[in-house]
């Protein structure tokens, strides 16, 4: 693509917190084109200041609504907040309906808030492929907090832990019993549990179940000495949101004072490197699809080669020169 504005020229606009520049840079990052790599590399040097908070939970648990209230509350302290809200792409057409903004409309007049919707574009695990690139752009642009809203998850989409410093898991009342609460997966990744829709009568049972789950473990807290709280919120009655903001801030302080923050930053860096390596390899394989790949598939069909041997052959074939900057 012959971009009208070179990505490198957008860097200055991003660093000056120009909304149009930030928005265009995120589009470039999402496109994954080689042209934006030097610009993203430059921006990466300016990252590391924002507190990245992940919000996850099942579809319809109230993530977007809570996000809207949460963002408005954080703004009261004068801090700038960016939101990256992810919704699924269709596995058939590749298209997506991104509807998270609907529930954040009260925020739209505030220049200290930036909301961006992203489609998963085939990525599994609850995040989009370019989510963390978008977070980099927003971090470099000087947003104090970047909130990532994952797609509505099932039980096992836990990528957010390796993307955020603080993970908030939102549960809605009435979606399961005490056995659901002790299963592995999305519930155990929480730094903070939120039970939404607490204006509903069955909310208290969900809070009790989650608290009970926490006490079943041998230790009550992780390495940082953090005891995972369960907070009831109601967007309808505006309850619990202030407590949630305070708790997110307390968690950040606990991460810093215990040294856990460094560990999490390392974890995020490692995952990003591995994921990116995977993506580069996958793209290389696609380029070879008509040549080497189809030959190997033929050999596997004839049972001359097993999948493991074929994979090693394919890896030996990959040339990465084109990716060098």
């Amino acid at each position: 693509m012959n971009n009208a504005v070179p990505s490198l020229e957008l860097v200055e606009r991003v660093l000056a917190a120009d909304i149009g520049g930030i928005a265009r840079m995120i589009t470039r990052a999402e496109s994954g084109l080689e042209e934006c790599r030097p610009a993203m590399a430059e921006l990466y040097r300016h990252t590391g200041k924002a507190h990245v908070v992940g919000i996850t939970g099942v579809p319809g648990s109230g993530k977007s609504t809570l996000m809207g209230k949460l963002t408005a509350h954080i703004r009261k302290s004068g801090r700038k907040v960016a939101v990256v809200a992810i919704d699924p792409s269709s596995p058939y057409s590749g298209g997506a309906i991104l509807g998270d903004r609907i529930r954040m409309s009260e925020l739209s007049g505030d220049m200290g808030i930036f909301i961006r919707s992203m489609a998963t574009r085939g990525s599994l695990g609850g995040l989009a492929r370019a989510t963390l690139d978008a977070v980099d752009v927003l971090d470099a642009a000087g947003f104090d907090l970047v909130l990532i809203e994952t797609v509505g998850v099932g039980q096992d989409e836990v990528d957010i832990v390796q993307a955020a410093h603080t993970t908030v898991v939102v549960s809605a009342p009435g979606l399961g019993d005490d056995i659901q609460a002790i299963k592995a997966g999305v519930l155990e990744i929480a730094d903070i549990h939120v039970v939404s829709k607490c204006d509903r009568p069955d909310a208290n049972k969900t809070i009790v179940d989650l608290k009970a789950m926490m006490t079943l473990g041998l230790t009550l807290s992780g390495a940082s000495g953090w005891v995972v709280p369960v907070i009831g919120t109601s967007a309808l009655k505006m309850e619990g949101v202030e407590e949630l903001v305070d708790t997110i801030d307390r968690h950040r302080e606990a991460l810093e004072s215990s040294g856990e923050l460094i560990e999490r930053q390392k974890r995020i860096a490692e995952r990003r490197m591995l994921k990116t390596a995977e993506e580069i390899l996958r793209d290389e394989f696609k380029k070879h699809r008509d040549g080497k790949v189809s030959v190997l598939i033929g050999q596997m069909m004839a049972h001359e080669k097993n999948p493991y041997a074929a994979a090693l052959d394919l890896l030996a074939e990959v040339r990465l020169e084109g990716h060098r900057q």
Partner: peptide
């Protein structure tokens, strides 16, 4: 195949 942002 488009990304459609719906505002409500």
């Amino acid at each position: 195949g488009m990304d459609v942002i719906y505002t409500g």
